[in-house]
Amino acid sequence: MTDPRELYQQVILEHNKKPRNFGKLDPCTHHAEGHNPLCGDQLELSLVIENGVVADIKFQGSGCAIDVASASLMTGIVKGKPVAEAEAMIEQFRGMVRGELDPATQAPLLGRLTLFSGVKDLPSRVKCAILPWATLHAALRGEEEASTE
């Protein structure tokens, strides 16, 4: 992919404009803040985990379309999933946007989120796509902060 327009597909633009699961859960069981020091993107995740399952999840913050759409789609796909499966998704998503695994065959848990695979061709934007996932990883581990530094 040489044209960044290919990454800005309708799904990403639409989730950027109308992000799902936007806001804050209060009370929540898990919480973390993510920062991308390079561009100043900020993201706050709050989760309710019950019996090892992500019962609810919300995010808020400001960032670019890649970041916001990634957070919106991520919260949608992990909601209702066991924590272990969410962890596996994090690994697959990270590997995919870094170009380390093939989205067609090696990211079965990600479903349509493989549309982010094009990010690997825009190295400066990989961290934008990863930020929500790094923040989720921190929250699940009980850490309060994540950084893509």
Binding site: T2, D3, P4, R5, L7, Y8, L38, C39, G40, G63, C64, A65, I66, L122, S124, R125, C128
Partner: peptide, 20 residues
Amino acid sequence: HPHDMGSLLDGEGVVIRAGH
């Protein structure tokens, strides 16, 4: 967001700075 603008301009060959 300026970073999206930066990437899209980059795709048109236009070199600018997006950031703080």
